[in-house]
């Protein structure tokens, strides 16, 4: 999907040049048209492998190989999961990862948000516009989200906090009916009835296809020394893959620009 996480964001209010804000899909469409204006071609396919050992580099989509003298990697990241069978089975049937996409389908319902960072608290706040009650379940005894979000959430009557607790099972056959919770300190196990479970427990970089061909760190992120370079000359990385801290559209665009300029320089030097 062109646009990745932005395409799933309902409203973008902090991208420069749009004083009234813009919807994620509209912003993506404008960027795509701009790139096409400069001759970019879009292939909506999933890269299944890469060949980076020699030039020209290759990007594989099943049997088909696309070749290039340089490669920019902007594969972003995906939501971390709890690793439960029930979570996969009930995905889209009460389990969800994007409040802005699906919150309005939970009007008047009770939703459990799992996590304690910025995205968990932001998603919990977004949900309160529709949901009747929001329970934020966090494995620690305090939020790791920024103060502004923590303050807003603490003052919100719809949000209730469950500390030191993990979700050990999501209950329900065809749709979510509840969660089984386990308190890490007391060992107490109990069930909370709910209609939805929103997972916001962090991100995993989409770098599986690059392992063994580029250096990655212990968390799976491609190692970069100057921001956008990689362990192989001519291959660059940008977007959420090399910005674990800010994860904004504007920072992703900034590193995309840096990667493009590096490609230009690299190709000019290679002649």
């Amino acid at each position: 999907m062109v646009g990745g996480q932005i395409a799933l964001t309902y409203q973008v209010d902090n991208y420069p040049g749009f004083p009234d804000g813009i919807t994620g899909p509209e912003l993506v469409d404008l960027m795509k048209r701009q790139a096409e204006g400069f001759g970019a071609e879009f292939l909506e396919e999933e890269a299944t492998g890469v060949i980076l050992g020699s030039t020209p580099f290759g990007v594989l989509v099943d049997e088909t190989e696309y070749q290039g003298r340089s490669v920019i990697i902007a594969t972003g990241s995906k939501n971390r999961s709890l690793g439960l069978e029930s979570e996969e089975r009930l995905m889209g049937r009460g389990v969800f990862v994007c409040a802005t996409c699906d919150a309005l389908l939970y009007e008047g319902k009770r939703v459990v948000v799992v996590g304690g960072g910025d995205s968990a608290v932001q998603e919990a706040l977004d949900l309160t516009r529709f949901a009747k009650e929001v329970y934020l379940v966090h494995r620690r005894d305090r939020l790791s989200a920024c103060k502004c979000l923590t303050d807003r959430a603490s003052q919100d009557e719809k949000i209730k906090f469950i500390w030191n607790t993990t979700v050990t099972e999501i209950l329900g056959e065809k749709k979510v009916e509840g969660v089984r919770l386990s308190n890490q300190e007391t060992g107490n196990v109990w069930t909370l009835e709910c209609d939805g479970v929103l997972l916001a427990i962090g991100w995993i970089p989409n770098t599986e296809i690059f392992r063994g061909q580029l250096d990655v760190d212990e968390r799976g992120y491609i190692t970069s020394t100057n921001g956008v370079d990689t362990s192989r000359a001519g291959v660059y990385v940008c977007g959420d893959l090399n910005d674990r801290r800010y994860r904004q559209v504007v920072t992703a665009c900034g590193s995309g620009c840096m990667a493009a300029l590096e490609v230009e320089r690299y190709l000019a030097e290679k002649g």
Binding site: M91, G92, D102, L104, L105, K175
Partner: peptide, 15 residues
Amino acid sequence: NRNLAMEHGVMGTPT
């Protein structure tokens, strides 16, 4: 649209 989806048990997009 939202109500119609909810009446048919839609809880996620895309369905």
